[in-house]
Design a protein around this nucleic acid. Sequence first.
DNA 1: GCAGTACCGTACCGTACGGTACACTGTCAA
DNA 2: TTGACAGTGTACCGTACGGTACGGTACTGC
Lengths: 232, 232
Amino acid sequence: MEGYLDHADAGGPDSDLAQQGDGVTAASFSDRHREVLDVVLSLMVEAGDRFSLSRVCREASCSKETLYNWFGDRDGLLIATVQWQASKVRMPELPAGRLDREALREALASFAQSWLSVIGGDLSIALNRMAISHAGSGKSRLGEIVLTYGPDGMRRRLKPLFELGRDRGLLVFDDSGEVFHVFFGLVVADFQVRALLGEAPKFDREWVRQRAAEAADRFLVLFGANSGGSAR
Amino acid sequence: MEGYLDHADAGGPDSDLAQQGDGVTAASFSDRHREVLDVVLSLMVEAGDRFSLSRVCREASCSKETLYNWFGDRDGLLIATVQWQASKVRMPELPAGRLDREALREALASFAQSWLSVIGGDLSIALNRMAISHAGSGKSRLGEIVLTYGPDGMRRRLKPLFELGRDRGLLVFDDSGEVFHVFFGLVVADFQVRALLGEAPKFDREWVRQRAAEAADRFLVLFGANSGGSAR
DNA sequence: GCAGTACCGTACCGTACGGTACACTGTCAA
DNA sequence: TTGACAGTGTACCGTACGGTACGGTACTGC
């Protein structure tokens, strides 16, 4: 479990993760590693946590010994897989030009849209399921890692946007953490839990666009400067 | 897996569950059953899905054979456990007297408070984790059942309140399903996922009260009749 | 007293899987 | 050519666990 980064061709020690969240880049893995990890991802989607290492080896045409040399043990493999997947996800950038209310709404909706697409994807659902079940048995740091790349990563990326909006006089709030909770709630609502619990999701493109737009609108009603909500 | 209700002293067939959600009452289980199921619950909290039937038998002072006679197989035991737990949870009633804006706010906050307490509890977290990991491996109907008792149950209970509010001219909305999503988001936000992923929760009494009140306030800003939000 | 039943405790079986050992293959540098 | 090395494939070990079988016990109704 400790040795899964022994191959480190790049990237720092994993303690960076908790603070920065960008500690593991795509370059941290060789092509061959990526092949194996992608096999693991597909197996996760197919069978959740119930895939065997033998299966991984068979489908990836590698030997168990190699797996253990590279990743230490099963947990190491899972953790590397989560990090590999996380390194592939890209988030929208902050708006470049002037920020008026309309540009802010656009930026918020764009974030929401990208986020909904991610958490509605088969991969994200599989990873979250796995991390959640591991968190229950307390048998690895998987939950912590998914937390770092998931909600925490989102919060880290949104905070500057919120504060920029406040600086421009477009938003009114005290605590950016609190604002994030509300934004999360408006965007994600109960859709993530439902998907995790196995409800057949209908995260199609149009639905996502629509939901994202509504969430951004409602958020502005609550925290927008000239709509006197009970914002605090 | 089919036989877990063979003992049925009361309660209808489990197809009631999907429609009504109250199909299994506390009376569906004998005292001895309840003892065993409570042991299972405590083991779930302690170890997630990774408890063995031997362990259950040891702690509950029963034999495996009895377990299999009662519940059919491991899944049957888990399902019965979820239903037993669900039968213990009670939700607040609708307000009895006149419904004005203040009473509505009270009722919403009360629902939110009770809900947050439930989903923040060790038991609920353990059950949700288990259901989610089972949904991933597609190995039982556990996810479906938790869904029925969780979000669906909540929606079923809230719908009349929303519609009463609309009838009284206190709320403005078209689709009660959509309103529920927003209410869920405002109340639960990212706290449930974070707890499921293992973040140490701080669901203490005061925090819950505060969050519930804020969620109810924000909900009224969005859908309250005389606060011209973008409600639809 | 006796049969029937429900249950407990425990020993046991089969299997699946994580992890290890080892022989074989291809590659590359000296 | 040869030797070091990384990786593959496979056989194997130990263990944990779901599920079954069975002997023993307490209670109930006749």
